[in-house]
């Protein structure tokens, strides 16, 4: 049990795991919608991007040629929804020929720190992500 639960009896640690690439299937877009809806409930929300999920965060996505909506700009709005912890697994990036420079620059503005811009993406190793997962109350996998 986390401390938060003992205190108010309501704040839980929610983790949304993203393991699918965007566009090829509907999972990535659906997960994002669930995150945006869930953000209304004032929980402690984290997102994890591992396996092909890291492809959701690549910069310069341009979907004009395939006639689908480019939903990657919505990740930039997550900070407005107080979703500020995006864990990205290093090994998943490396296996796919990507580095952190290939990802969008995602930031949030810290209201308690004079709206200072802070990075939302936290690069973690597989072991570190394992520890983050072990610390969650609820995990939803997409």
């Amino acid at each position: 049990m986390s401390e938060g639960m003992e205190e108010g009896g309501s704040i839980k640690k929610f983790m949304y795991m993203n393991r699918k690439a965007p566009y090829g299937t509907i999972y990535a877009l659906e997960a994002l919608e669930v995150v945006l809806i869930g953000a209304a409930f004032d929980q402690d929300v984290s997102l994890a991007f591992l396996d092909d999920g890291v492809f959701q965060l690549t910069k310069d996505q341009d979907t004009k040629g395939i006639g689908m909506k480019n939903f990657s700009p919505a990740f930039k709005a997550l900070g407005d929804y107080d979703v500020t912890k995006l864990y990205v697994e290093k090994e998943s990036l490396e296996e796919r020929g990507l580095t952190a420079d290939d990802l969008m620059d995602l930031v949030y503005e810290d209201e308690d720190d004079d709206w200072a811009e802070k990075p939302s993406i936290r690069l973690v190793s597989r072991d570190e992500l394992k520890a983050v997962l072990a610390d969650q109350d609820v995990i939803m996998s997409f």
Partner: peptide, 9 residues
């Protein structure tokens, strides 16, 4: 952002 913001946002 390609989304309509929630009211609190």
């Amino acid at each position: 952002y390609q989304i309509a913001p929630a009211i609190r946002v």
